[in-house]
Write a protein that binds this DNA or RNA. Structure first.
Length: 430
RNA sequence: GUGGGCGUAGUGUAGCGGUUAACACGUCAGGUUGUGGCCCUGAAGAUCGAGGGUUCGAAUCCCUCCGUCCACCCCA
């Protein structure tokens, strides 16, 4: 007995079906327009890069690099990785193409798939899509504010309610060392209360203790020393200025609210100073719609002439999940202007020509399935939601006409000379 | 990597030891002479996730695996 074979999409990845495309288009289009409104230009980078780029950029010790990358060796022996995030590739492109010679800052955005090997669950997939913006080459806190503002503008354009913004500063490399000593001291005092995972963090990455979900760790975090109290002069000034700008913006975006969260830290090594997250109001487990921050050391780390940068990445799937949850879905695909129905052999050929002629006149025309009964073709046309049915049978051919019938309303069917301009004109009427 | 729920036609479900696995939606075809939306009729479509076991008998009980969803973790 032969085994019947069948394939499903691999674990954690999914098809975006025709019925979902209108909503996807809407979200992507909103993202694109938002970015363009702020003067950001689109960049597309390859879907895979040198593995070393991510090890260097994202950080060898991060979870992403340690256990979530789709890495492979190609036939030529190069080590490549399906991009797990967008910032490092954009920075690589900035360096490679000498963008430091362009007027600074260079403002870039992308809408692209990302890949991470992880256990899938709600809002978390092995392939997901991100809309991201990066502003490189200018250290000003105005850009920190701008990046956050873009995110807010995007959320608002999508009419998502209840999204809150949390921000924090993780300081500069120099000040962070001093801070970490204090933080470690603080947590060490309660070491026996910590979980095994958190005890491990105490050694490896004490900052992550701050955003532990464990109740004991959270309690200890609440009176832990705060990063912002350890900021150096320049970083402190940057932070204060950012808050001032956000206050000013808050007066314009009336429902814009942000909260300073001293426990907010991020899992990618390249961040310094400002970090932020956007999260939806519901208490699901995927709490992050957006994540971003400043990454001043990154360009230098990747071998470029040092240039500061800031940006965010936002998960499109999570945005869509939230739109659906809030039932803000009212997008429909555009239907065709006309469906062509044809009966008889001569008519079939003529209908193919007519469709081509109408499309040349910028109309969208869908062909009803050939070889089916008139009734079946009418049913098809109706379901396609085309605005008109154009009927060509051998009878019409003899008389040199086509029958045009409105489908959405109960309009009269009329005969029109079998002439593309005349028919196009009739179909263009609303 | 760790836990829990669930896996029956394309989709959503019913059946939970006993003969041809049911219903709805969808698909296709019809309801006379070339005309849709409603309605009616009919057809196609399921090796009941896979493998093993218990039993005279399993979609139904047990085990293993796989998938999926949810949670931890991590993050978008």
């Amino acid at each position: 007995m032969t085994q019947r074979i069948s394939f499903n999409a691999p674990r954690g990845v999914s098809d975006i079906l025709p019925s979902e495309q209108p909503l996807w288009d809407h979200v992507r289009e909103t993202a694109r327009k938002t970015a363009l409104q702020f003067g950001y230009s689109r960049i597309d980078t390859p879907i895979f890069e040198s593995t070393a780029l991510f090890k260097r950029g994202v950080g060898d010790d991060t979870d992403i690099v340690q256990k979530e990358m789709y890495s492979f060796k190609d036939l030529g022996g190069d080590y490549l990785t399906l991009r797990p995030e967008g910032t490092a590739p954009v920075c690589r492109a900035y360096i490679q193409h000498g963008m430091h010679n362009l007027p600074q800052p260079v403002r870039l955005f992308y809408i692209a798939p990302m890949f991470r090997y992880d256990r899938p669950q709600a809002g978390r997939y092995r392939q997901h899509h991100q809309f991201g913006c990066e502003a490189i080459g200018d250290p000003s806190p105005f850009l920190d504010a701008e990046i956050i503002e873009i995110g807010w503008h995007y959320i608002t354009s999508l009419r998502l309610a209840g999204v809150s913004v949390r921000i924090n500063s993780v300081g500069d490399a120099e000040t962070r060392d001093a801070y970490i000593v204090k933080l470690r001291d603080h947590f060490s005092r309660y070491e026996s209360d910590l979980t095994a995972v958190d005890r491990d963090r105490l050694v490896r990455s004490p900052l992550r203790l701050l955003d532990s979900k464990d109740s004991a760790a959270r309690r200890i975090s609440s009176d832990a020393p705060r990063v912002i109290d350890f900021l150096s002069g320049a970083a402190a000034e940057h932070w204060d200025k950012l808050l001032e700008i956000l206050e000013a913006l808050g007066a314009v975006y009336t429902d814009f609210k942000y909260r300073i969260d001293h426990t907010l830290v991020r899992g990618l090594d390249y961040y310094n100073r400002t970090v932020f997250e956007f999260e939806p109001s519901n208490t699901g487990s995927q709490t992050s719609l957006f994540g971003g921050g400043r990454y001043d050391p990154l360009i230098g780390t990747l071998g470029g002439k040092p240039a500061p940068g800031i940006g965010f990445g936002s998960g499109i799937e999570r945005i869509i999940l939230e739109i659906r949850r809030q039932k803000k879905v009212k997008v429909k695909a555009g239907a065709a202007d006309a469906a062509i129905i044809h009966i008889g052999e001569a008519a079939t050929l003529r209908s193919v020509q007519l469709a081509a002629e109408l499309r040349a006149r910028r109309l969208s025309v869908i062909a009803a399935p050939a070889g089916r009964s008139m009734r079946a073709q009418m049913r098809f046309s109706n379901q396609s939601e085309a605005r008109f049915a154009i009927i060509i049978g051998d009878r019409e051919i003899e008389k040199g006409i086509a029958a045009v019938k409105p489908l959405l309303s109960d309009g009269e069917q009329i005969n029109i000379a079998l002439n593309p301009d005349a028919i196009a004109n009739a179909v263009s009427q609303r």
